[in-house]
Amino acid sequence: MIEIREVDETNIDDMISVCDPPIISEAYKKGVEIKRIWLLEMLRTYGDVGLVAYFNGKPAAQLLTYPEKADPTSLKRENVLVVNCIYNPLVEAQGKGIARSMVEKLIEKVRGKYEFLLTHAFDTREFLSQAEFFKRSGFREMTKEDLYYSFSGRELKESYSGFWKEGEEYRRSDEDIGRIMTFYEPVCPFSYLWAYRAKEIVKEIAPELETRMLNGWEHPEEFVSRGRNWMLVNGIPIKSLPIEKEKFKEELKNALKT
């Protein structure tokens, strides 16, 4: 049996649990608590954060949304709803059209409230790529990863501008030389987890240096002014992630030498 429900204060934890990894660390738990606080704020301010799907009574999939205007690192357009992600990891619930049904329900739910749905369709390297999935669901491609759905038929001129937007010009600042900074977003527990793991790896390489961990939504000017890079070491943007540990270490060492 499949049931799709709107997320409210009674089933926030169901939405969060969909993404839980097999091993839950203390850092991940901290990321979950940050996300829970953020979800409550979104619900109480805007009344909606998306959908959760149940398969035989068990939380199986989630579709997370928020108004673009809520993100202080974005263009903050009034008529754009960001589809942050859609995820269905439960093996027995796959291949049953759950994700497609969630998108269809979302489209009908917000029709008339927003002019555009916008997503930055990152690749989880699992199942069908998010970009391909959204294209099949009627979204138009703007860039390789940025897609939008238009209720009016009009074209959306400017693409995704939130936390995961990269490629903006960044000039090394004197104030960042000799410092290490990581930024995370409150929308995903893994964002905090990666920032924490990065801090731990820095301790292995350069224990004398302190790493500042900042919530990008709470420090938007600091984040955006640094080209939206999630990590800076000695004023150098770090592109790899801690899950690529050896590559990440090498990039850190090179940045510290520069």
Rank of each mutant, 00 (worst) to 15 (best):
V7K: 02
T10H: 11
N11H: 05
I12M: 08
I12Y: 00
D13Y: 10
I16F: 04
V18R: 07
C19H: 12
D20S: 13
D20Q: 06
P21K: 12
P21E: 07
I24L: 10
I24D: 03
A27F: 08
Y28D: 00
Y28G: 04
I34E: 11
W38A: 10
W38P: 00
W38C: 06
M42C: 13
Y46H: 15
Y46N: 11
G47S: 07
L51C: 02
N56I: 12
N56Y: 14
K58A: 14
P59W: 04
L63T: 03
E68A: 04
K69M: 15
K69H: 14
T73R: 03
L75S: 13
L81A: 05
V82W: 07
C85M: 14
I86E: 03
A93D: 06
Q94Y: 08
K96T: 00
G97D: 10
I98Q: 05
A99V: 12
S101V: 02
V103N: 04
V103P: 04
E104C: 06
E104K: 15
L106C: 00
I107T: 04
K109E: 09
R111L: 10
R111D: 13
G112L: 07
K113M: 14
Y114D: 08
Y114Q: 10
H120S: 13
H120W: 13
A121M: 02
F122V: 11
D123H: 12
R125C: 12
E126F: 14
F127Q: 12
A131V: 12
R136Y: 10
G138C: 03
F139W: 02
R140N: 15
M142S: 09
K144W: 09
K144D: 08
E145F: 13
E145R: 13
L147V: 10
F151P: 07
S152W: 09
S152P: 05
R154M: 11
E158T: 11
Y160I: 06
S161E: 08
E168K: 09
E169L: 15
D174L: 12
D174S: 14
G178H: 02
G178P: 01
R179T: 07
I180W: 00
I180N: 03
T182P: 03
F183N: 06
Y184L: 05
E185C: 15
V187P: 05
C188L: 01
C188A: 04
A195E: 02
R197P: 06
E200G: 08
E210H: 11
T211A: 09
T211P: 03
M213Y: 05
G216C: 14
G216P: 05
W217T: 00
E218V: 07
P220I: 03
P220L: 01
F223R: 02
V224L: 11
G227Y: 00
R228I: 04
R228S: 08
L232E: 04
K239P: 06
E246M: 07
N254Y: 10
L256E: 06
K257H: 07
